[in-house]
Amino acid sequence: MQNDSSLLEVRNLHTHFFTKSGVVKAVDGVDFSVKPGETLGIVGESGSGKSITALSILGLIPSPPGRIVDGEVLFKGDNLLKKSPKEMRSIRGKEIAMVFQDPMTSLNPVLTVEKQMVETILTHEKLTRKQAFARALELLDLVGIPDAKNRIHNYPHEFSGGMRQRVMIAIALSCNPSLLIADEPTTALDVTIQAQILELFKKMQKELDMAIVMITHDLGVVAEVCDRVMVMYAGKPAEYTETTKLFDNGKHPYTLGLMHSIPKITEKRQKLEAITGMPPDLRSLPIGCSFAPRCKYAMESCLESDPLLKNVADGHAVRCFLHDDAFSKEESFNETIIGSEKS
């Protein structure tokens, strides 16, 4: 899925952590691209490597123990992995902005919102302090903080969770980034506040024409805001396609398992179809497909070799032997569940 017009292109990214107890392959071969103005969702459970993918793009992998061992991150055609820390600092916050899950720990508790906002703006833009202040006020208004004129002098703890996330978004937007990376931006918020923030993301994206990489574990959020989506499992992409295609015609057994295991608000079912077993230990991944031990369609080939991400239709890639034409579909389906729930 390569495209000359993409804003961000991640190719064959491998980020490993070298710990005392072994090499943790947190991200192990991820490819995706983001076009200007679109929203790409990265979905997965904890430990699937979605946050590490984001941190790798931003050059924020704690090193040691982490290291990007292979791959390219092309942003507007430039490989970010080749940049010096100084060059990265001028890109982060200006060209690529980020919003994290927990607004309390990502804001500085001992500085007022004004200080934090003006500092960001002055770092990246040639403005006077007064102009920067005016810009900060304007942004707070934009993200819907009531009474911004007075509130700008408050400290983070004086804001509620939802308001703090709005402040974070205002800071992220302060230099008109062309790409916003949002890592679980609504996970810590209540549903009614989550709805407000998701609306805000959509509105901001329209007004500022920026691309968003939305990292989440919630398929509902994906359906709501994303154009395209990549499902990750154990550091690798499982499925990568348009959002509507994923929900209408999801193919990877893990994607389907996720969808079936979520209770739905619109219908009441007798029993949830849970995925059996647990995610694998990233230090000792199974030899074949890392999902095979939990997969109810696992075949012998799945335990022997790891499938590749292959296009099954236009703009729909799946990493599964079931959908790989090179493997005959006749191969005996082993319907018995290999991993047992009691493991």
């Binding site: 709805a195 998701l198 509902g220 359906a223 709501e224 959002t243």
Partner: peptide, 9 residues
């Protein structure tokens, strides 16, 4: 109504 529904349509 605030719950995001896993259905893009």
């Amino acid at each position: 109504s605030a719950v995001p529904k896993a259905n893009p349509h």
